[in-house]
Nucleic acid binder design. Structure first.
Lengths: 183, 183
DNA sequence: AAGAGGCGTCAACACTTGTTGACAACTACT
DNA sequence: AGTAGTTGTCAACAAGTGTTGACGCCTCTT
Protein backbone atom coordinates (compact mmCIF):
# COMPACT_ATOMS: atom_id res chain seq x y z
CA UNK A 1 0.00 0.00 0.00
CA UNK A 2 1.16 3.54 -0.70
CA UNK A 3 2.14 5.30 2.46
CA UNK A 4 0.46 8.63 3.10
CA UNK A 5 2.48 11.51 1.66
CA UNK A 6 4.10 13.99 3.98
CA UNK A 7 2.81 17.51 4.29
CA UNK A 8 5.66 18.81 2.20
CA UNK A 9 4.83 16.34 -0.56
CA UNK A 10 1.14 17.16 -0.36
CA UNK A 11 1.96 20.83 -0.80
CA UNK A 12 4.25 20.16 -3.75
CA UNK A 13 1.65 18.00 -5.41
CA UNK A 14 -1.15 20.51 -5.04
CA UNK A 15 1.11 23.38 -6.06
CA UNK A 16 2.20 21.61 -9.22
CA UNK A 17 -1.37 20.81 -10.20
CA UNK A 18 -2.51 24.40 -9.71
CA UNK A 19 0.49 26.25 -11.08
CA UNK A 20 0.37 23.90 -14.02
CA UNK A 21 -3.14 24.82 -15.07
CA UNK A 22 -3.50 28.43 -14.03
CA UNK A 23 -0.10 30.04 -13.70
CA UNK A 24 1.77 31.56 -10.83
CA UNK A 25 -0.22 34.76 -10.37
CA UNK A 26 -3.59 33.09 -10.75
CA UNK A 27 -3.03 30.77 -7.82
CA UNK A 28 -3.07 31.92 -4.22
CA UNK A 29 -1.33 30.29 -1.31
CA UNK A 30 -4.70 29.56 0.21
CA UNK A 31 -5.80 27.83 -2.99
CA UNK A 32 -2.88 25.46 -2.70
CA UNK A 33 -3.15 24.82 1.01
CA UNK A 34 -6.88 24.39 0.67
CA UNK A 35 -6.42 21.72 -2.00
CA UNK A 36 -3.70 20.04 0.03
CA UNK A 37 -5.75 20.20 3.20
CA UNK A 38 -3.08 21.90 5.27
CA UNK A 39 -2.66 25.28 6.92
CA UNK A 40 -1.61 28.28 4.86
CA UNK A 41 1.23 29.15 7.18
CA UNK A 42 3.15 26.01 6.30
CA UNK A 43 4.08 27.28 2.88
CA UNK A 44 6.26 29.96 4.39
CA UNK A 45 7.56 27.56 6.99
CA UNK A 46 8.62 24.80 4.57
CA UNK A 47 9.48 26.69 1.40
CA UNK A 48 10.18 30.20 2.58
CA UNK A 49 7.10 31.55 0.80
CA UNK A 50 5.03 31.22 -2.33
CA UNK A 51 7.95 31.95 -4.62
CA UNK A 52 10.04 29.27 -2.97
CA UNK A 53 7.23 26.78 -3.40
CA UNK A 54 6.98 27.61 -7.08
CA UNK A 55 10.70 27.18 -7.56
CA UNK A 56 10.50 23.84 -5.80
CA UNK A 57 7.87 22.67 -8.31
CA UNK A 58 10.10 23.97 -11.10
CA UNK A 59 13.09 22.03 -9.80
CA UNK A 60 10.81 19.03 -9.67
CA UNK A 61 10.31 18.93 -13.43
CA UNK A 62 11.74 15.68 -14.69
CA UNK A 63 14.43 15.98 -17.33
CA UNK A 64 12.65 15.79 -20.65
CA UNK A 65 13.25 12.14 -21.30
CA UNK A 66 13.10 12.67 -25.02
CA UNK A 67 16.56 14.20 -24.78
CA UNK A 68 17.90 10.91 -23.49
CA UNK A 69 17.16 8.78 -26.54
CA UNK A 70 19.02 8.29 -29.80
CA UNK A 71 19.10 10.73 -32.66
CA UNK A 72 17.06 8.41 -34.91
CA UNK A 73 13.93 7.92 -32.83
CA UNK A 74 14.16 11.33 -31.20
CA UNK A 75 11.48 12.79 -33.42
CA UNK A 76 9.12 9.91 -32.86
CA UNK A 77 9.55 10.11 -29.10
CA UNK A 78 9.07 13.86 -29.10
CA UNK A 79 5.87 13.63 -31.11
CA UNK A 80 4.62 10.88 -28.88
CA UNK A 81 5.27 12.88 -25.73
CA UNK A 82 3.33 15.83 -27.11
CA UNK A 83 0.36 13.85 -28.39
CA UNK A 84 -0.65 12.02 -25.29
CA UNK A 85 -4.37 11.78 -24.60
CA UNK A 86 -5.77 14.76 -22.82
CA UNK A 87 -5.47 13.65 -19.22
CA UNK A 88 -4.67 16.25 -16.59
CA UNK A 89 -3.68 13.57 -14.12
CA UNK A 90 -0.88 12.03 -16.14
CA UNK A 91 -0.01 15.19 -18.01
CA UNK A 92 1.48 16.60 -14.87
CA UNK A 93 4.78 15.06 -15.85
CA UNK A 94 4.73 17.02 -19.08
CA UNK A 95 6.47 20.31 -18.38
CA UNK A 96 4.88 22.08 -21.31
CA UNK A 97 1.92 23.73 -19.69
CA UNK A 98 3.79 24.79 -16.62
CA UNK A 99 6.21 26.63 -18.87
CA UNK A 100 3.51 28.20 -20.99
CA UNK A 101 1.41 29.22 -18.03
CA UNK A 102 4.21 31.14 -16.41
CA UNK A 103 6.36 32.56 -19.18
CA UNK A 104 4.35 35.78 -19.08
CA UNK A 105 4.55 36.18 -15.35
CA UNK A 106 6.43 39.35 -14.42
CA UNK A 107 8.50 37.69 -11.73
CA UNK A 108 8.84 34.13 -13.05
CA UNK A 109 9.20 34.81 -16.77
CA UNK A 110 12.98 35.04 -16.76
CA UNK A 111 13.33 31.81 -14.86
CA UNK A 112 11.06 30.04 -17.33
CA UNK A 113 12.88 31.35 -20.37
CA UNK A 114 16.23 30.32 -18.94
CA UNK A 115 14.91 26.84 -18.24
CA UNK A 116 13.56 26.42 -21.76
CA UNK A 117 16.78 27.60 -23.35
CA UNK A 118 19.23 25.69 -21.18
CA UNK A 119 17.14 22.67 -20.30
CA UNK A 120 15.41 22.02 -23.60
CA UNK A 121 16.42 24.08 -26.64
CA UNK A 122 20.19 23.92 -26.31
CA UNK A 123 20.38 20.17 -25.53
CA UNK A 124 17.98 19.51 -28.37
CA UNK A 125 20.14 21.49 -30.77
CA UNK A 126 23.22 19.53 -29.69
CA UNK A 127 21.36 16.30 -30.23
CA UNK A 128 20.21 17.32 -33.68
CA UNK A 129 23.64 18.55 -34.72
CA UNK A 130 24.59 19.56 -38.24
CA UNK A 131 24.29 23.01 -39.74
CA UNK A 132 21.87 25.53 -38.24
CA UNK A 133 21.20 23.20 -35.37
CA UNK A 134 19.79 25.92 -33.14
CA UNK A 135 17.39 27.05 -35.80
CA UNK A 136 16.18 23.54 -36.50
CA UNK A 137 15.73 22.81 -32.82
CA UNK A 138 13.73 26.00 -32.35
CA UNK A 139 11.53 25.19 -35.33
CA UNK A 140 10.85 21.72 -34.01
CA UNK A 141 9.94 23.15 -30.64
CA UNK A 142 7.65 25.64 -32.35
CA UNK A 143 5.79 22.82 -34.06
CA UNK A 144 5.50 20.75 -30.89
CA UNK A 145 4.55 23.58 -28.56
CA UNK A 146 2.22 25.12 -31.11
CA UNK A 147 0.40 21.84 -31.49
CA UNK A 148 -0.06 21.48 -27.74
CA UNK A 149 -1.10 25.11 -27.45
CA UNK A 150 -3.79 24.88 -30.12
CA UNK A 151 -5.06 21.55 -28.90
CA UNK A 152 -5.01 21.80 -25.13
CA UNK A 153 -5.25 25.49 -24.44
CA UNK A 154 -7.20 26.95 -27.33
CA UNK A 155 -9.06 23.68 -27.88
CA UNK A 156 -9.53 24.34 -31.56
CA UNK A 157 -11.89 21.90 -33.20
CA UNK A 158 -9.68 20.20 -35.78
CA UNK A 159 -7.26 18.89 -33.17
CA UNK A 160 -9.46 18.00 -30.23
CA UNK A 161 -11.65 15.52 -32.09
CA UNK A 162 -9.24 13.77 -34.42
CA UNK A 163 -7.79 10.36 -33.62
CA UNK A 164 -4.38 10.30 -32.01
CA UNK A 165 -2.92 8.13 -34.77
CA UNK A 166 -3.85 10.64 -37.44
CA UNK A 167 -2.50 13.48 -35.38
CA UNK A 168 0.78 11.70 -34.77
CA UNK A 169 1.22 11.00 -38.46
CA UNK A 170 0.65 14.64 -39.28
CA UNK A 171 3.02 15.76 -36.56
CA UNK A 172 5.75 13.42 -37.78
CA UNK A 173 5.59 15.00 -41.22
CA UNK A 174 5.68 18.49 -39.76
CA UNK A 175 8.53 17.60 -37.41
CA UNK A 176 10.61 16.12 -40.20
CA UNK A 177 10.03 19.23 -42.25
CA UNK A 178 11.08 21.40 -39.33
CA UNK A 179 14.42 19.68 -38.80
CA UNK A 180 15.33 19.71 -42.48
CA UNK A 181 17.49 22.70 -43.19
CA UNK A 182 16.68 24.83 -46.20
CA UNK A 183 19.33 24.42 -48.92
CA UNK B 1 -1.41 67.42 -35.89
CA UNK B 2 -2.95 64.56 -33.99
CA UNK B 3 -5.55 65.76 -31.59
CA UNK B 4 -5.07 64.70 -28.00
CA UNK B 5 -6.85 61.43 -27.27
CA UNK B 6 -9.79 61.40 -24.93
CA UNK B 7 -9.53 59.84 -21.51
CA UNK B 8 -11.43 56.81 -22.70
CA UNK B 9 -9.00 56.33 -25.56
CA UNK B 10 -6.02 56.82 -23.31
CA UNK B 11 -7.33 54.11 -21.03
CA UNK B 12 -7.97 51.73 -23.90
CA UNK B 13 -4.52 52.32 -25.30
CA UNK B 14 -2.74 51.72 -22.00
CA UNK B 15 -4.93 48.73 -21.21
CA UNK B 16 -4.21 47.10 -24.54
CA UNK B 17 -0.46 47.59 -24.16
CA UNK B 18 -0.42 46.09 -20.67
CA UNK B 19 -2.91 43.27 -21.13
CA UNK B 20 -1.08 42.40 -24.32
CA UNK B 21 2.26 41.85 -22.65
CA UNK B 22 1.38 40.57 -19.21
CA UNK B 23 -2.09 39.10 -19.23
CA UNK B 24 -5.27 40.03 -17.46
CA UNK B 25 -4.41 38.91 -13.94
CA UNK B 26 -0.91 40.33 -14.00
CA UNK B 27 -2.11 43.87 -14.62
CA UNK B 28 -3.82 45.97 -11.99
CA UNK B 29 -6.22 48.82 -12.58
CA UNK B 30 -3.72 51.16 -11.02
CA UNK B 31 -1.05 49.96 -13.42
CA UNK B 32 -3.24 50.96 -16.32
CA UNK B 33 -4.42 54.27 -14.95
CA UNK B 34 -0.88 55.10 -13.90
CA UNK B 35 0.37 54.52 -17.43
CA UNK B 36 -2.51 56.48 -18.89
CA UNK B 37 -2.08 59.29 -16.41
CA UNK B 38 -5.66 59.29 -15.21
CA UNK B 39 -7.45 58.47 -11.98
CA UNK B 40 -8.12 54.85 -11.06
CA UNK B 41 -11.81 55.49 -10.47
CA UNK B 42 -12.46 56.27 -14.12
CA UNK B 43 -12.11 52.64 -15.15
CA UNK B 44 -15.24 51.73 -13.26
CA UNK B 45 -16.98 54.88 -14.44
CA UNK B 46 -16.30 54.41 -18.15
CA UNK B 47 -16.13 50.66 -18.57
CA UNK B 48 -17.98 49.33 -15.55
CA UNK B 49 -14.83 47.85 -14.10
CA UNK B 50 -11.61 46.08 -14.99
CA UNK B 51 -13.40 43.24 -16.72
CA UNK B 52 -15.35 45.64 -18.89
CA UNK B 53 -12.16 47.41 -19.86
CA UNK B 54 -10.59 44.12 -20.87
CA UNK B 55 -13.59 43.18 -22.97
CA UNK B 56 -13.44 46.57 -24.63
CA UNK B 57 -9.84 45.91 -25.66
CA UNK B 58 -10.93 42.50 -26.90
CA UNK B 59 -13.71 43.98 -29.00
CA UNK B 60 -11.11 46.36 -30.33
CA UNK B 61 -9.13 43.60 -32.02
CA UNK B 62 -9.23 44.20 -35.74
CA UNK B 63 -10.54 41.36 -37.84
CA UNK B 64 -7.54 39.28 -38.81
CA UNK B 65 -6.99 40.80 -42.21
CA UNK B 66 -5.40 37.62 -43.47
CA UNK B 67 -8.88 36.14 -43.64
CA UNK B 68 -9.86 38.80 -46.15
CA UNK B 69 -7.46 37.85 -48.92
CA UNK B 70 -7.65 35.18 -51.61
CA UNK B 71 -7.05 31.49 -51.10
CA UNK B 72 -3.82 31.56 -53.09
CA UNK B 73 -1.83 34.17 -51.19
CA UNK B 74 -3.45 33.37 -47.86
CA UNK B 75 -0.50 31.38 -46.64
CA UNK B 76 1.99 34.04 -47.62
CA UNK B 77 0.00 36.73 -45.88
CA UNK B 78 -0.41 34.64 -42.76
CA UNK B 79 3.29 33.91 -42.53
CA UNK B 80 4.08 37.54 -43.10
CA UNK B 81 1.73 38.68 -40.35
CA UNK B 82 3.36 36.30 -37.90
CA UNK B 83 6.95 37.13 -38.77
CA UNK B 84 6.95 40.85 -38.32
CA UNK B 85 9.97 42.36 -36.60
CA UNK B 86 9.80 42.33 -32.86
CA UNK B 87 8.25 45.72 -32.24
CA UNK B 88 5.83 46.13 -29.36
CA UNK B 89 4.55 49.40 -30.78
CA UNK B 90 3.31 48.05 -34.09
CA UNK B 91 2.62 44.56 -32.83
CA UNK B 92 -0.34 45.90 -30.91
CA UNK B 93 -2.48 45.33 -33.97
CA UNK B 94 -1.52 41.67 -33.99
CA UNK B 95 -4.06 39.84 -31.87
CA UNK B 96 -1.77 36.92 -31.24
CA UNK B 97 -0.14 37.87 -27.99
CA UNK B 98 -3.30 39.17 -26.40
CA UNK B 99 -4.90 35.79 -27.02
CA UNK B 100 -1.94 33.80 -25.80
CA UNK B 101 -1.47 35.92 -22.71
CA UNK B 102 -5.03 35.41 -21.53
CA UNK B 103 -6.10 31.97 -22.62
CA UNK B 104 -5.00 30.57 -19.28
CA UNK B 105 -6.80 33.17 -17.25
CA UNK B 106 -9.50 31.62 -15.07
CA UNK B 107 -12.11 34.25 -15.89
CA UNK B 108 -11.14 35.23 -19.45
CA UNK B 109 -10.10 31.86 -20.84
CA UNK B 110 -13.52 30.92 -22.17
CA UNK B 111 -13.92 34.23 -23.94
CA UNK B 112 -10.52 33.86 -25.57
CA UNK B 113 -11.18 30.31 -26.72
CA UNK B 114 -14.51 31.29 -28.21
CA UNK B 115 -12.89 34.17 -30.06
CA UNK B 116 -10.15 31.99 -31.50
CA UNK B 117 -12.60 29.33 -32.64
CA UNK B 118 -15.25 31.61 -34.11
CA UNK B 119 -13.11 34.51 -35.21
CA UNK B 120 -10.07 32.72 -36.54
CA UNK B 121 -10.14 28.93 -36.77
CA UNK B 122 -13.57 28.43 -38.31
CA UNK B 123 -13.25 31.20 -40.94
CA UNK B 124 -9.78 29.90 -41.79
CA UNK B 125 -11.13 26.39 -42.28
CA UNK B 126 -13.86 27.70 -44.56
CA UNK B 127 -11.30 29.60 -46.56
CA UNK B 128 -9.07 26.57 -46.92
CA UNK B 129 -11.92 24.28 -47.88
CA UNK B 130 -11.52 20.73 -49.13
CA UNK B 131 -11.40 17.60 -47.04
CA UNK B 132 -10.43 17.82 -43.37
CA UNK B 133 -10.53 21.58 -43.56
CA UNK B 134 -10.81 22.02 -39.80
CA UNK B 135 -7.83 19.83 -39.16
CA UNK B 136 -5.70 21.61 -41.72
CA UNK B 137 -6.67 25.01 -40.35
CA UNK B 138 -5.81 23.94 -36.83
CA UNK B 139 -2.46 22.58 -37.93
CA UNK B 140 -1.64 25.79 -39.72
CA UNK B 141 -2.55 27.78 -36.64
CA UNK B 142 -0.38 25.50 -34.55
CA UNK B 143 2.60 26.23 -36.76
CA UNK B 144 1.99 29.97 -36.76
CA UNK B 145 1.23 30.35 -33.06
CA UNK B 146 4.01 27.97 -32.09
CA UNK B 147 6.50 29.98 -34.06
CA UNK B 148 5.43 33.24 -32.42
CA UNK B 149 5.41 31.58 -29.00
CA UNK B 150 8.93 30.22 -29.29
CA UNK B 151 10.28 33.41 -30.77
CA UNK B 152 8.61 36.19 -28.81
CA UNK B 153 7.72 34.61 -25.50
CA UNK B 154 10.33 31.98 -24.92
CA UNK B 155 12.92 33.87 -26.96
CA UNK B 156 14.72 30.71 -28.00
CA UNK B 157 18.02 31.39 -29.68
CA UNK B 158 17.53 29.88 -33.12
CA UNK B 159 14.59 32.14 -33.94
CA UNK B 160 15.49 35.43 -32.35
CA UNK B 161 18.74 35.92 -34.23
CA UNK B 162 17.96 34.61 -37.70
CA UNK B 163 17.09 36.94 -40.57
CA UNK B 164 13.42 37.45 -41.29
CA UNK B 165 13.77 36.28 -44.86
CA UNK B 166 15.17 32.93 -43.80
CA UNK B 167 12.49 32.55 -41.17
CA UNK B 168 9.74 33.35 -43.66
CA UNK B 169 11.06 30.80 -46.11
CA UNK B 170 11.12 28.13 -43.43
CA UNK B 171 7.64 29.06 -42.28
CA UNK B 172 6.25 28.89 -45.79
CA UNK B 173 7.49 25.31 -46.12
CA UNK B 174 6.02 24.37 -42.77
CA UNK B 175 2.75 26.11 -43.54
CA UNK B 176 2.38 24.34 -46.87
CA UNK B 177 3.06 21.04 -45.17
CA UNK B 178 0.44 21.81 -42.56
CA UNK B 179 -2.35 22.50 -45.04
CA UNK B 180 -1.63 19.41 -47.13
CA UNK B 181 -3.91 16.63 -46.02
CA UNK B 182 -2.45 13.19 -45.45
CA UNK B 183 -3.67 10.69 -48.07
C1' DA C 1 8.76 13.16 35.41
C1' DA C 2 10.98 16.88 32.85
C1' DG C 3 12.68 19.04 29.06
C1' DA C 4 13.45 19.53 23.97
C1' DG C 5 12.34 19.61 19.29
C1' DG C 6 9.41 18.83 15.42
C1' DC C 7 4.71 19.72 13.61
C1' DG C 8 0.41 21.87 12.96
C1' DT C 9 -3.26 25.63 14.32
C1' DC C 10 -4.90 30.11 14.95
C1' DA C 11 -5.19 35.00 14.80
C1' DA C 12 -3.35 38.87 13.17
C1' DC C 13 -0.35 41.90 10.42
C1' DA C 14 0.65 45.07 6.45
C1' DC C 15 -0.29 45.44 1.83
C1' DT C 16 -2.64 45.39 -2.70
C1' DT C 17 -6.71 44.59 -5.12
C1' DG C 18 -11.20 46.54 -7.53
C1' DT C 19 -14.80 49.50 -6.60
C1' DT C 20 -17.77 53.19 -4.72
C1' DG C 21 -19.62 57.66 -3.28
C1' DA C 22 -19.04 62.40 -2.17
C1' DC C 23 -17.24 66.57 -3.83
C1' DA C 24 -15.17 70.16 -7.00
C1' DA C 25 -14.38 72.15 -11.66
C1' DC C 26 -15.93 72.98 -15.98
C1' DT C 27 -19.13 73.42 -20.00
C1' DA C 28 -23.59 74.14 -22.22
C1' DC C 29 -28.12 75.61 -22.34
C1' DT C 30 -32.24 78.45 -20.91
C1' DA D 1 -27.33 84.44 -13.68
C1' DG D 2 -28.84 80.02 -12.89
C1' DT D 3 -29.11 75.22 -13.67
C1' DA D 4 -28.16 70.68 -15.42
C1' DG D 5 -24.88 67.50 -17.13
C1' DT D 6 -20.34 65.99 -17.83
C1' DT D 7 -15.65 65.13 -16.22
C1' DG D 8 -12.02 64.57 -13.04
C1' DT D 9 -10.24 64.19 -7.93
C1' DC D 10 -9.99 62.37 -3.51
C1' DA D 11 -10.65 59.37 0.34
C1' DA D 12 -12.31 55.30 1.79
C1' DC D 13 -14.19 50.75 1.65
C1' DA D 14 -14.44 45.46 1.79
C1' DA D 15 -12.12 41.62 0.22
C1' DG D 16 -8.14 39.03 -0.74
C1' DT D 17 -3.05 38.72 -0.76
C1' DG D 18 1.48 36.66 1.44
C1' DT D 19 3.63 36.38 5.69
C1' DT D 20 4.69 36.26 10.69
C1' DG D 21 4.68 35.11 15.60
C1' DA D 22 2.59 33.02 19.53
C1' DC D 23 0.58 28.94 21.19
C1' DG D 24 -0.66 23.92 21.84
C1' DC D 25 0.09 19.06 20.78
C1' DC D 26 2.72 15.04 20.24
C1' DT D 27 6.98 12.18 20.52
C1' DC D 28 11.47 11.16 21.87
C1' DT D 29 15.47 11.48 25.04
C1' DT D 30 17.53 11.99 29.56
Amino acid sequence: MTKTPSTKEKLLQAARALFWTRGYSNVSVRDITGAAGVDAALVSRYFGGKQGLFEATLADIPAWDVLACDRENLLEKAVESFTQPYNPQTDLVNPFTLLLANVLDPVMGDKIRAFVQQGIATPLAEKLGGVRAEEKAAMLLAVLFGFALIRKNFQVKGLTDTSLDDLRAQMMILGQTAVQSAP
